[in-house]
Write a protein that binds this DNA or RNA. Structure first.
Lengths: 210, 210
DNA sequence: AACTGTGAAGTTTTTCACAGCC
DNA sequence: GGCTGTGAAAAACTTCACAGTT
């Protein structure tokens, strides 16, 4: 056990930090400079105790009697999540979804920059999509390795997702955000997250009448 | 307490059912007809005990010694989630994301059909997007109410999301899938779910080295 | 007076482990 | 022998409630 040993933070806590960060940025846009666990919780539908407990894992970010300095807390959370730097991201798949992702302006100021857009289809390769030129999957490995890209967003058909993920891992990618509606197996050291709108919709229909 | 009173099922269990369903459909495509909690769990990285416990909330779907009949289990889970019917969905926002959503083929066979695409911009209104003609937000309320649409996908700028959500609720929508990177407040009876790729990316960067 | 940070208590969720059935 | 369904145990997570600080 090293002198600087860190307690393990529950993953569920880590998952909430981006939500806190997002809400704090919003408060900042509203020209507030201080907030409280109660105000933040009200916005997010999370109890104030939960927020205080979550934040306490990383040290005392607040002031008793006062609350949290928004700018300071944003900075600290960005440090914790390592998004005070700008991560290069590769997008694989230049279909409608890949194109929408590539055009999305919302990555920039939250720690990410799309660096490349890949596709396997000869029709797509060479095409200009926003500021990107679609590159062939065949050169993906070399580029990702060469530039040390660690994060990829997968927007290929479900059938191809596992094979492409394998190539990404081989190329050195350590975090994959998979938009294909299929489970992917990756080594334990590689992070994976899923976005599938249908799972969310099906979650909600359970509660609908009729 | 009615004679047919149902025990309350934990929401976290409901959230996993769509994942089971998705994996089962995949197994079916691979021409399997029977599976086990172990096989399913292996695909999903969920323990077999968890899967058995989750499914047991709804009655005995499996056979001891044998496992689960895939077709039967799919049908039962679709019943539970109420996706054996086809839900009409409205999409609001005909930007890159709304367009990508409107083109996506993956809703059809999983219980959902996009019925309308709305936007507020005069440049967008009347434009043809795939099989849809973009309709004005001003007619949204009447159409949603008139057709009894209960589900909406929100793909508008963060600034407009709360206002549009309020209109949707007023129009009778009971479930909203919000793609705007902002928290929305809706009445407790209305379901809301979020998709924000950046929160997933930030969750993963916590674990990345350097 | 207002609010944080935190042990302790309470609740929920997951895993264990095995009886019972095919 | 293989697998489900399930009570009981364990682990994880959330809330309570309050001492301590501004």
């Amino acid at each position: 056990m090293s002198a600087k040993s860190q307690a393990v933070i529950p993953d569920i806590v880590i998952g909430r930090l981006p939500l806190y960060l997002r809400a704090l940025r919003r408060l900042q846009q509203e020209d507030k400079s201080v907030t409280s666990s109660q105000e933040l919780g009200g916005r997010l539908d999370i109890s104030s105790a939960q927020i205080r407990k979550d934040l306490s894992h990383f040290g005392g970010f607040g002031k008793q009697g006062t609350g949290y300095q928004i700018e300071y807390l944003i900075d600290k959370l960005q440090d914790v999540l390592q998004v005070n730097q700008e991560w290069m991201v590769a997008v694989i798949g230049a279909g409608n979804l890949g194109i929408a992702i590539s055009h999305y302006r919302g990555f920039q100021d939250r720690g990410f920059r799309i660096a490349h857009l890949f596709d396997i289809s000869p029709q797509k390769i060479g095409q200009r999509i926003g500021e990107f030129v679609v590159q062939p999957v065949s050169s993906m490995r070399a580029i990702i390795r060469g530039e040390g890209i660690k994060i990829a967003m997968l927007a290929v058909p479900a059938e191809d997702a596992q094979a492409v993920a394998d190539q990404l891992v081989d190329a050195g990618v350590m975090a994959i955000l998979n938009y294909a509606p299929i489970n992917i197996n990756v080594p334990a050291a590689v992070q994976i997250q899923y976005i599938d709108p249908v799972t969310h919709l099906q979650h909600m229909t359970f509660y609908l009448d009729d």
